[in-house]
Write a protein that binds this DNA or RNA. Structure first.
Lengths: 246, 246
DNA sequence: GACTCAATGTTTACGATGTCAACATCGCAC
DNA sequence: GTGCGATGTTGACATCGTAAACATTGAGTC
């Protein structure tokens, strides 16, 4: 996807593909040290160019890191899709849908584990307009697969249509919180084997949470089943992919 | 909790309580702008002291921000406990346990919403030993209440003891992911009313996920129950990281 | 082919930050 | 009172983001 890009001691005055080279270098920095490691001067240094040259292609540090963030998000959904494709499909449509849901979740968490720097960068706090920040992610294959999978769950009958609405957010918040607590929270201290158990436990709970049986104890008839007001509206109206570039 | 602390133009050469004053000032910075706003020189400036004076009380910037992080975590659990105390107890022990679980979750998310800077700082990435970073949080009232509540759920029978193990992490990861996606993710773009719906939807799902009924569709006898390998019981030996100290 | 000029890089410089070293001032024990 | 350790201050340095002024190049145009 990139010729030689980074670390090129060129002889020509003009680089030829500085924008991409800088992005790649910055992405590498993010991979190693997360968002705070993305430093403009260092990226320029690695590309073999003066620091201020970056300003011909990026509005500034903020713009650079924003670009890197997009790349990180792309890698994330890539991993999700990869994990989905890796597994073997099940014959039964219902089980197949559940398998896909889990595969997407695992991909999400595995990406966070294997690329902590990129994951943190993908979700690092930005100030700009949220639409532009997340539009691409939501429209990307990995997330579209999630919607499709949940639809399949509803279609095949595993998932009560009444619980379909907002289901993507239940899944997303679950795996996201899990990933975050592994990277920046106390879960990072767990030994691998134990952590694996926790991950499975949470993924199970996410599935269960999406299926959403009644909340009150089902083993006893006394509980008024209404304890959970499920008035979740349609989330995330899908943002228009407006292309801005200063 | 602090006398006059910040913004004091003192006449004395010695401040008297610089450590606390700096912590408070830094906490304020975190409140406004999150972890990256916690800048040592600015804190010193607000206290009315030279920048390097801070080094008499903190090892450096890292140490300062680490202290602030602890304070943020304390405020978080405080909010959880407050939300718990605010609600009216239910007579039925089962419903009471469920109410408490939800109150803790709401407190968590509400803190993230009302104090985004503090929340982000509370979970900002640190390098140090994880034990020291999280030991206090896990031992704090707010989190102890969570354990107690889940125990109560198990004791009263709402929660199948088989699903008790790891339940705190299901709850935590859920509310944490929700909070994160609101602050640093796409959920921040949602209008308040819609967001409220999403929050309730996710909190419902968390409860359901903890209760953990079987995963395969129960409405139809065909589905071989076991589709989603619910082998969470594995090595989920309670989440508290062993207390090792540097 | 020489000229023009907009795009692309470079040098220099400024303010801000974290941090160190050397110095100043205070309070408290003897 | 006299030291002396604790606490603050001044000055300096490296690094970072960024702006201004200057240099180099390639692509057209005559």
């Amino acid at each position: 996807m990139d010729g030689m890009s980074t670390t090129a001691s060129r002889g020509t005055y003009h680089h030829g593909d500085l924008a991409n080279a800088l992005s790649s270098a910055a992405l590498d920095l993010a991979r190693r040290g997360g968002p705070e490691a993305v430093v403009l001067r260092e990226a320029a240094r690695q590309v073999g160019v003066s620091a201020t040259a970056a300003y011909r292609h990026f509005a500034g540090h903020e713009d650079l890191i924003e670009t890197v963030q997009q790349l990180c998000q792309t890698e994330l959904v890539g991993r999700m899709a990869a994990e989905l494709a890796a597994g073997v499909p099940e014959a039964d449509p219902q089980r197949e849908a559940l398998r896909r849901l889990r595969a997407l979740g695992r991909g999400y968490v595995q990406f966070a584990q294997s690329e902590p720097g990129l994951f943190r960068t993908a979700f690092s706090h930005r100030d700009g307009p949220l639409d532009e920040q997340w539009a691409a992610l939501l429209a990307a294959p990995g997330f579209q697969e999630l919607t499709a999978t949940l639809d399949a769950m509803a279609d095949t009958g595993v998932l009560d249509p009444a619980h379909r609405v907002g289901a993507e957010l239940v899944a997303w918040t679950g795996v996201h919180g899990l990933s975050m607590l592994i990277l920046d929270g106390p879960l990072g201290a767990l030994p691998a084997a134990e952590l694996e158990g926790v991950i499975n436990r949470v993924l199970d709970a996410i599935t269960t949470g999406i299926l959403g049986r009644e909340v009150m104890s089902p083993g006893r008839g006394d509980g008024p089943r209404g304890a959970a007001r499920t008035r979740a509206g349609g989330p995330t109206r899908r943002a228009s992919p407006g292309g801005r570039r200063k």
